[in-house]
Design a protein around this nucleic acid. Sequence first.
DNA 1: AGTTAAGCGAGACGGTACGTCTGGTCTTGCC
DNA 2: GGCAAGACCAGACGTACCGTCTCGCTTAACT
Lengths: 202, 202, 202, 202
Amino acid sequence: MVNKTPAAKAPDATRRNERSRRAILDAALEIVGEVGFTKLTIEAIAARAGVGKQTIYRWWPSKAAVLLEAVVPEGLDPLTVELPDTGDIEADLRTVLRGTVDELNNPKLDAPTRALSAETQNDPELGRQLVERILEPQLQAYVRRLRSAQEAGQIAEGIDLRIALELLVGPLFHRWHTRTLPLTHDYADTVAELALRGLTPR
Amino acid sequence: MVNKTPAAKAPDATRRNERSRRAILDAALEIVGEVGFTKLTIEAIAARAGVGKQTIYRWWPSKAAVLLEAVVPEGLDPLTVELPDTGDIEADLRTVLRGTVDELNNPKLDAPTRALSAETQNDPELGRQLVERILEPQLQAYVRRLRSAQEAGQIAEGIDLRIALELLVGPLFHRWHTRTLPLTHDYADTVAELALRGLTPR
Amino acid sequence: MVNKTPAAKAPDATRRNERSRRAILDAALEIVGEVGFTKLTIEAIAARAGVGKQTIYRWWPSKAAVLLEAVVPEGLDPLTVELPDTGDIEADLRTVLRGTVDELNNPKLDAPTRALSAETQNDPELGRQLVERILEPQLQAYVRRLRSAQEAGQIAEGIDLRIALELLVGPLFHRWHTRTLPLTHDYADTVAELALRGLTPR
Amino acid sequence: MVNKTPAAKAPDATRRNERSRRAILDAALEIVGEVGFTKLTIEAIAARAGVGKQTIYRWWPSKAAVLLEAVVPEGLDPLTVELPDTGDIEADLRTVLRGTVDELNNPKLDAPTRALSAETQNDPELGRQLVERILEPQLQAYVRRLRSAQEAGQIAEGIDLRIALELLVGPLFHRWHTRTLPLTHDYADTVAELALRGLTPR
DNA sequence: AGTTAAGCGAGACGGTACGTCTGGTCTTGCC
DNA sequence: GGCAAGACCAGACGTACCGTCTCGCTTAACT
């Protein structure tokens, strides 16, 4: 399928100007970092990128969509994501959760990430894309690692690994989202420990 | 403290028109339910409420602030919140998490709640208020109930109850926020069970 | 009955606060001199005069009416106006027209006078009042002086003195109104001379 | 000179939409005739003309400027204006002043003309433009006709023709402006006669 | 002397319009 | 045909004033 609506006339992607595309994505990231998502405007992006507004409207449906593409790691994300597997599930989870904490604390990513996170509440379609292209691949990697642990007898049989995963990442996102308390490595460790304790066989 | 900025001249709250206030809050809730937060405008609220725009700007700093006040249960929320305490911590948590699931699934609350949740990402001050006035009182109730269970020996000593609480509610909010999978009573039960399993003494 | 319109409730003028009245007139004159008539607002007058807005609305129908009252020489204008009569009509007219030129060039009166002059175009009722209370008494004084000259044989019989008067003052007001060329004593003299030349008997 | 302020970025006049321009001018004239200048608003013009407000603000600095352009005869006014020259100066002036009286009595032109006349008092720059683009060309035509009469010996040498002109038109504008007495052909004739009498050689 | 009814300062209110900003579309001319 | 540029229609923004309406408070005048 090429067009959602029959009347839509899709632009010819082969003639697309890659320089303009990069300039737009870079400008969007810069501006969102400077003034926040609310004051990020298509006009400002176009001006900063030295680009006509139509060039943005031609390729993206909204400023959030631009930001989404700007945030997605350029080359290879979809399925390449993999968690470490040393055989020690708790150690591996600590490592990963600490990494997640570090990412969430990264000030350069903070503005666009929060902006996108916010916008998904108002724009479910955007949310679907963000989940599909960024979140879900990572969650699947968790599931695969947990399955490996389950097969090794480190996690009780019969446990829904999807829920297990949410037990691990839910607390981190909750704290990030509400800004109630700081996200630290200690916190990551404790979450990993307590969650795992609920998952291990008795 | 009376004024944030010395130059600000606060309006006289004793002269405030309560009818207008209610009309504004009601109109905001109605409109956000109809067209979503992005298309909710101050002008539309004023028009629907039969009120001048200035009357909104006089008392609220943003449409999000209006919505916040509209969503807060009118009379008595701050500390009255209390969780059931039957002595059976798992049963009580199931009850409460099921209730939370029901609230999150309530279509009438969905639009304003997501709108506020989103806006807190762009407006930290709003987030602070939302946490302080709505979220934190409820979380504290969790902490009190968990402490009671801890004292009854149902939860291991030395466990940080704040983190315990996040283990319970984090997964629910994560699923609500990402719209990945449905929020059901079964899900609430499973989360309660697995989280508690990690908290109980060995 | 005291009221023109049955519904109108006239305020009791005997209880009027003279201090407030003066403060309002003074404030209006000050502000119009500072920012011009367009930016003269009732609110600004009230604020500067330390007066409630209602006190202005109670006694005047518009900001132009305030200005009109502020500009009218306080005590004695209506019929006291009299032109000099030395027996030499040309000399007397030169004196008077030079005086008019001086008044029109007075920078303190310029702003309010132009403002009122302008407003009469949009508000004929105001124009009627301004003519009746300020302009007409002066014009009548001209007519009386011209009649005296006519009776002395210095002005031809049969000449409409109303038109004669307009021949004298019309050019001055035209030049003042259009700001085309400067208003000088020389100009006043020349107008008096040429106009009179058209009025004298052959 | 291109820009008054160096920072101003002038819009590209070659891209201007002529249909919008005409619609705006027509709408302004209509509305001013219906409700008067004070209640003429930019918003109403835009709405009636089916035009965005910005399109008005882009090309005109004020509603008065719009009206000025709307009132200026479209094609060819600047120097084409010429008074009749039959050789009989008094007859010619009667013709012209009668024509002026008719124009000033034209009810369709009355509202916008009075509005502009009024506005020039508050906005000297507008006054300058109105004089330059409308009034002065006509006055110059008077001067040329008077010079022709002077050269024919019908007007005394040494008379300042600029002042002579003001003797003729000043009275008419004074009466129009003050609305004291009606403007009739008889009045025009009398003014022409008396003024000329003052100008002719003895 | 006590009551009562205005005028008064203050400012909240329902409105209208302001002049600006941005959204999203359309047009022009360059490449 | 993509693109930079930017004019265009549309409409929300947040502000300024409008003219009306309470609210207490003075401040007479009239019991």
